[in-house]
């Protein structure tokens, strides 16, 4: 196997006294889809944000496509062009229409000319099934449509890797499917993807690997069948049972709090 597309070595991250990541090692191969699951506050978003250096790691190294992201001398803007990121809150640019949301970054960051940028934008809007919304403003779109535009915006930059941070968590349930369908298709096309999600069906069907995080460490890492279907660790089992049967949560709230929370 060639070099992993994403490689995380001994990653630590603290916010003040709060150590959120306590030594993460993770490799994601080219074209691999890895879903990251875990309880709230376990550091999933922080891990994802360390991969494109939206958060500065306290210790450890991150490589993307063989380039060390954590090298102090690295051109971080150049690295980020190769890493697409999709946020829970979409973060479309509200003062620009859909097409401009896709063309402005291409023109300002990649220096593409107007025609090329427009062509690439149209291609990627078609890819997420939103060609007819090209002239709409984000505020007039549904959450699901906004998220698909956000995915298209990231794709228009031609990334080698895509990071998704709970892309469907802010959506009404009936809109989740459209976004997942786009991501499924992206996975089939061979995109390297790291997805923080609570969508277990998606993880089971699409992911090559599932990583379970708790308390700032990776507790379990393996195929979906193993991690979701036959978890080896008590913490994983506990988390999954609460996810599948939220009613259980209330009964066990107290114990899980003691396990999960170590901060004052």
């Amino acid at each position: 196997m060639s070099r992993p597309e994403i490689e995380v070595r001994g990653l630590h991250k603290s916010f003040g006294d709060n150590e959120v990541l306590r030594g993460i090692d993770l490799e994601i191969g080219q074209g691999e889809v890895v879903c990251v699951i875990g309880p709230s506050g376990s550091g999933k978003s922080t891990l994802l944000r360390c991969v494109n250096l939206l958060e500065e790691p306290t210790k450890g190294q991150v490589f993307v496509g063989g380039t060390e992201v954590t090298d102090p001398d690295v051109d971080i803007d150049a690295v980020r062009r190769r890493i697409g990121m999709v946020f829970q809150q979409f973060n479309l640019f509200p003062h620009l229409n859909v097409t401009e949301n896709l063309t402005l970054p291409q023109r300002r960051v990649l220096g593409r000319d107007k025609e090329t940028a427009a062509r690439v934008a149209a291609e990627n809007l078609a890819r997420v099934g939103l060609s007819e919304k090209a002239d709409a403003y984000p505020s007039s779109l549904s959450g699901g449509q906004q998220q698909r535009v956000a995915i298209a915006r990231a794709l228009a930059m031609g990334p080698e890797v895509m990071l998704f941070d709970e892309p469907t968590s802010a959506l009404d349930p009936e809109l989740v499917g459209d976004v997942l369908a786009v991501m499924r298709r992206l996975a089939r096309e061979g995109m390297t993807m790291m997805v923080v999600t609570h969508e277990m069906t998606f993880a089971r069907e699409v992911a090559d690997r599932v990583v379970f995080m708790d308390g700032g460490v990776i507790v379990e890492d393996g195929s979906p069948d193993r991690v979701i279907g036959d978890p080896q660790h008590e913490r994983t089992r506990h988390f999954l049972s609460r996810l599948l049967d939220p009613a259980m949560a209330e009964v066990e709230e107290e114990t899980s709090d003691q396990v999960g929370k170590s901060e004052p």
Partner: peptide
């Protein structure tokens, strides 16, 4: 919103370019 700067940075905008555009 802070997410605007983060979205811009994650697309490869430099801080100055993100500010301006």
């Amino acid at each position: 919103p802070k997410g605007q700067m983060e979205a811009a940075r994650s697309l490869g905008f430099s801080p100055a370019k993100a500010m301006v555009s």
